[in-house]
Design a binder for these strands. Structure first.
Lengths: 206, 206
DNA sequence: TACGAACTAGATTGATCGATCTACTAGTTA
DNA sequence: TAACTAGTAGATCGATCAATCTAGTTCGTA
């Protein structure tokens, strides 16, 4: 028997492993608090591979890490804000599950990229832009659903911004206070705002 | 003429200078991204002084830095939320002036301790607790004024949490997007919530 | 099969890191 | 004035840092 196709790889390629490890490290310890060596140890990858795949060095790894984390969270947001969903309930559920998640990680993990973003906002324009784009992509997901539900474009944007700011602020407070209640608190407030906006929209579709 | 009291010091003592420099450095570059040497250069202070005044080392400097930044911002919050102030207007003004401030620093500075707090939340319990206490002190300022205006204690707490989360989330978004509008957006939303809570409270005093 | 490109591997480099250390200065008190 | 304490000054230390480098392996193509 001749094996004509190679067996599936036992593990992801080094580049993927590096990014996954980088995200785990940087979300908790920040950009400057994460060393290249720690990433490589976690990724089981060599120094040469990192600089081969990311010739821009640590900053390039950081920017890709932000993009990767941003895409993952956008997909999470999309899982709550599905087409046709009750947006008030979706919002409530989103915050309640965020609270449960933060608790389940013993208040270590919350937003995958906020810690990095806050840290590099003043020092790396490459990474700042990656974070800006990631956040914007989340806002767009929510905004699109609000508009589809009949809320006017301006109000949809405002709601999305309010929701984003609420969750990010609550993550910070939950992580420092070791209490997930602030996330639930702002979740109720935002869900109420969403429901009010929907009621004011008077959706003409059934 | 005998001078019986010493002349006022030309500059603050080293300990003060170190903390002031530390706050400036850490608020922008984060804890791990700020080196001891950079603090000392900015403070015009020697290595020996730092470890003399802060035998716990960098972590102790970080914790004191958080406390110092926390007190300064609490005083700023108190300047807006004065006794007897119209709390809806105070809230609106607070956010609008926060937006103007962030703009005036070219989106470099926002909250003095959020960047540090997010970074060390998972790695230093000493500093996490300092941040927790700082944030709690801000919440208390707002909560006290809401209660004094007749809002029930539970709702006052919620409002304070909503306000805190809104401003912190908006700071993050403003710094990454280089746009202060999100601060104004959430300011309008929170001011509206405050006004609604006040209207619902039906303050019996004139 | 040979060659080139892509990728892996990990040692090495000069710089920076936080902390320790020795020595000195200044201020206070008996 | 001498002794002590508080504080300043900055060199030094071992460890870690990001990046470079050399060498080897793997893969794809002609």
């Amino acid at each position: 028997m001749i094996q004509t196709s190679p067996p599936p790889p036992k593990r992801p390629p080094a580049r993927e492993r590096i990014l996954a490890a980088s995200l785990e490290q940087m979300r908790r310890y920040g950009y400057a608090g994460t060393g290249i060596k720690a990433i490589l140890v976690a990724a089981a990858a060599p120094f040469g591979s990192l600089y081969h795949h990311f010739p821009g060095g640590k900053e390039e790894v950081g920017a890709e890490t932000i993009r990767r984390g941003g895409v993952a969270y956008r997909e999470l947001v999309e899982a709550f804000y599905v087409d046709g969903a009750d947006l008030g309930d979706a919002t409530q559920t989103f915050f309640d599950e965020a609270a449960a998640f933060v608790e389940s990680t013993a208040f270590v993990d919350a937003c995958p990229i906020a810690t990095i973003a806050g840290e590099i906002a003043a020092t790396s324009d490459t990474m700042r832009q990656a974070a800006d784009e990631a956040f914007e992509s989340w806002l767009r997901v929510m905004e699109r659903q609000f508009v589809a539900a009949g809320i006017d474009v301006g109000r949809a944007r405002e709601l999305s911004v309010e929701l984003f700011c609420a969750i990010e602020g609550a993550f910070l407070l939950a992580r420092t206070s070791h209490d997930a209640e602030p996330i639930r608190t702002v979740g109720r407030a935002v869900a109420r705002s969403v429901r009010e906006a929907l009621a004011g929209a008077r959706v003409p579709v059934g």
